[in-house]
Design a protein around this nucleic acid. Structure first.
Lengths: 162, 162
DNA sequence: CTGATTGCAAAGAATTTGCACTGCT
DNA sequence: AGCAGTGCAAATTCTTTGCAATCAG
């Protein structure tokens, strides 16, 4: 296996090491992402970060997301376009995971497994690529929604993913 | 009765079975997708389909792509946003596969494996979801580009994925 | 016939950019 | 002090929509 997971630096350490300036806006954005838990879109991130620092601008949101992506500190998701074309972001945690979206009720389930790690390793071995970032998303029906469909209940409108 | 291409025939059968109307525009779009091989974005699809039927409109492209997605006949890809936010489409013909994008040279490599199938099966078992569509995309450096980086060659601009 | 499908043009959603000002380091 | 970072507004890119005309079944 080409890469081993190294202990992760804190974001602020990372910023200093790379001579990336720590501004009030970036701090507000990073704190918001880290406390959110999961799956923020850019508009929600802007809204919440503004509660910490009212001056944060939309452009800064996108520029900071770009920066964090380049630093490998966040993942970008589509969540199967359940709610339009926007992207969702989450802090990279220790274990890489996949996302499953229910087309009926909008529920998002995360899933991590050895098989996923093995698949990435196999891809690197077979293709010669060094994988830097990966994304596995699936859409379908969750168990509850399959049961509801079977019993003929009316389809609910799709809710926002959480 | 003349022999027809397998692909086309089964798709038309699919249309009839579902009472979906077969229009000249849809035929042009479907033929274009099937003959392209892989990875068309909407603008390219429009341009090529117009060579078969000049009247095809951008709106019809998107509406037909939506239809084919719903029918499960195409997959939608991002190819790691190597070239902006647009989507790429490919006919669902061969076995399900993942996509690897090289951030340096833009090359796209497809990858299918038993491990991938096993991962999807495990996700269904563990979560209770029934997966209808899935997408695994990864980005990194291909073997050649890693070598070039190591030998200090100049970075080439990223080309369009093919 | 008649309702699904289309072209056209305009709107919409998400993201990016140019530029002058601000504030880290 | 110098230049990376920012807000603002406008621009761009990609996709969707309303509507009258058209055409497949």
């Amino acid at each position: 296996m080409p890469f081993r997971k190294l202990q992760r630096r804190s974001l602020m350490e990372d910023f200093r090491a790379r001579r990336v300036r720590v501004t009030a806006q970036r701090r507000a954005l990073i704190e918001t992402i880290q406390e959110a838990g999961a799956h923020l879109d850019a508009a929600t991130l802007l809204e919440r970060a503004r509660q910490r620092n009212a001056s944060v601008d939309r452009a800064t949101v996108y520029r900071t997301l770009e920066l964090l992506k380049k630093l490998g500190r966040i993942d970008e998701l589509d969540l199967m376009h359940l709610n339009g074309e926007k992207h969702y972001y989450e802090a990279k945690t220790t274990s890489d995971h996949t996302h499953l979206a229910c087309f009926r009720c909008g529920k998002i389930v995360e899933f991590a497994s050895e098989v996923y790690e093995e698949l990435k390793a196999e891809m690197e071995r077979t293709t010669g690529f060094r994988i830097q970032v990966s994304r596995f998303e699936a859409g379908g029906l969750c168990k509850a929604c399959r049961v509801e469909d079977a019993t003929g209940k009316r389809r609910a409108s799709v809710k926002s993913p959480e």
